[in-house]
Amino acid sequence: MREFGSVKLASWLGEKNIKFVLRIKLGGYIQEQGKEFKRLSECGLVPGTSFYLPGVKVTKQKGFGLFDVAGYWQRKYRDSGEDEGWYLLTNIGTLKQAVTAFKCPSGIEAMFKDCKTGGYNLEALLN
């Protein structure tokens, strides 16, 4: 799912007043108000931690608005758990809502495949 998250798509969804939660790449940049750009990997996300940053720039490209960014990495239990945390681009409102929506298993993977290469080819429309 990670490769589907793009600032272009998020902007389009926001313009249509559609709530979204998109996983974004760890190497992406964010800029909190009054601070320098930094990579998501510098946010200090480790197992058992999370964060929610409202109203941040999510790309160095000009022309895009502000978004919320959530970071979530479930605590490992008996050496089992995710190998990496989630970095989520969202406009849904809170960390809990973003994580809950992203965890929702009801056909998300199938929907993304349909939108990308399974017929709708949504990403080609955005380029």
Score class of each variant (00 low, 15 high):
Asn121His: 15
Glu42Lys: 15
Ser106Lys: 13
Gly55Leu: 09
Phe37Trp: 11
Ser41Ile: 05
Asp79Glu: 09
Ala98Gly: 06
Val99Ile: 10
Leu26Ile: 13
Gln97Ala: 14
Gln74Gly: 11
Thr49Asn: 05
Val21Glu: 00
Asp68Pro: 04
Asn17Gln: 12
Gly55Arg: 13
Leu40Asp: 04
Tyr72Gln: 04
Thr59Tyr: 08
Arg23Gly: 03
Gly81Lys: 07
Pro105Arg: 14
Gly28Tyr: 14
Gly14Cys: 09
Thr59Pro: 08
Phe51Thr: 01
Asp68Cys: 03
Trp12Cys: 04
Ser11Pro: 05
Gly93Arg: 09
Cys104Trp: 13
Val7Glu: 03
Leu95Gln: 08
Leu9Met: 02
Phe37Asn: 05
Phe4Arg: 03
Ile30Met: 06
Arg78Leu: 04
Gln31Ser: 06
Gly119Asp: 03
Phe20His: 06
Ser6Gln: 01
Lys62Leu: 12
Ser6Thr: 09
Ser6Val: 00
Thr49Ala: 06
Arg2Phe: 12
Ala124Asp: 11
Leu22Ala: 00
Glu82Cys: 10
Leu40Lys: 08
Leu126Met: 13
Ser50Asn: 14
Ala101Lys: 14
Lys35Tyr: 08
Thr117Lys: 15
Tyr29Ser: 03
Leu53Glu: 05
Gly85Asn: 07
Asn121Phe: 15
Leu125Pro: 00
Gln31Lys: 13
Glu15Ile: 01
Ser80Ala: 13
Lys57Asp: 03
Ile24Val: 02
Phe37Tyr: 14
Ser50Ile: 03
Gly5Gln: 03
Lys76Gly: 01
Pro105Leu: 11
Ala124Ile: 07
Glu109His: 11
Arg23Tyr: 04
Glu36Phe: 10
Ser106Arg: 14
Lys25Asn: 14
Leu125Ser: 12
Gly81Tyr: 06
Tyr87Arg: 05
Lys19Tyr: 13
